[in-house]
Amino acid sequence: MELEAAKMIGAGLATLGMIGAGVGVGNVWASYFQAIARNPAAKDEIGASVWIGFAVTEAVALFALLVALMVLFG
């Protein structure tokens, strides 16, 4: 197998981590909206936790993208 083909396959496989991050972000926001629907008064209390969870989950996607770019251009 040629080196360029191996780089492309490796970069493609490295981006599969972004699928899990997308599912995680969806779960974070779905849980947030469900919690707000059940108890609207708790919106201010859980708002910061939602943003922290979103940021950590999105960081996983950025790390997967970074690894893919390192494989592709490294």
Rank of each mutant, 00 (worst) to 15 (best):
E58K: 12
T15E: 04
A68P: 00
L16R: 09
G53H: 08
A6Q: 07
L66D: 05
G74H: 01
I46Y: 01
L13K: 07
V25Q: 14
G10H: 09
M70E: 00
A6S: 10
A64K: 02
K7R: 13
L13T: 00
T57G: 10
S49P: 01
V50W: 05
K43P: 03
G20L: 02
A59V: 04
A21D: 15
A61D: 09
R38I: 01
A41E: 14
V28E: 13
A48K: 10
I46A: 03
L3F: 12
A55Q: 07
A30L: 13
A68V: 01
A61K: 03
E45T: 07
A37L: 09
E58P: 15
N27A: 15
F54Y: 15
A41D: 12
Q34P: 03
I19V: 15
M18R: 08
G17A: 03
I46C: 06
F73I: 11
A42N: 13
L66Q: 07
F54K: 08
A68H: 01
L3A: 13
N39D: 11
N27R: 15
A11P: 11
K7N: 05
L72P: 04
L65V: 00
K43W: 07
D44L: 06
V67R: 06
A5W: 08
R38F: 02
V60R: 02
G22Y: 01
A41M: 10
G20Y: 01
I52H: 02
F73K: 07
A5M: 12
N27F: 14
A37Y: 06
A11Y: 07
L66E: 00
I46T: 06
A55T: 15
Q34D: 11
I19C: 14
S49V: 11
G12Y: 01
V60Q: 11
A30Y: 08
A5G: 10
E2Q: 10
I52K: 07
M18E: 06
Y32H: 12
A21H: 05
V50P: 02
G22V: 14
G12F: 03
I19K: 00
I46D: 02
S31H: 10
N39T: 00
G74M: 02
G12W: 00
A37M: 08
V60H: 10
G74C: 00
A59F: 00
L69A: 10
G47K: 11
V23E: 14
V71L: 11
V25R: 15
A55R: 04
A14C: 03
F63N: 01
V60N: 09
A30I: 11
L3R: 11
M8P: 05
A48I: 08
L13R: 05
L3V: 14
M70R: 08
A55N: 06
A64I: 08
G47N: 10
Q34S: 14
V25P: 05
G47S: 14
M1W: 05
F73W: 03
L62P: 07
G12H: 05
I19L: 09
P40H: 02
A41H: 13
A30E: 06
A5L: 12
A30T: 15
L62K: 03
T15K: 05
L72M: 12
A14F: 05
K7L: 05
T15C: 13
W29P: 06
F73C: 01
G12S: 13
F63A: 11
Y32S: 01
G20I: 05
V71K: 08
F63L: 14
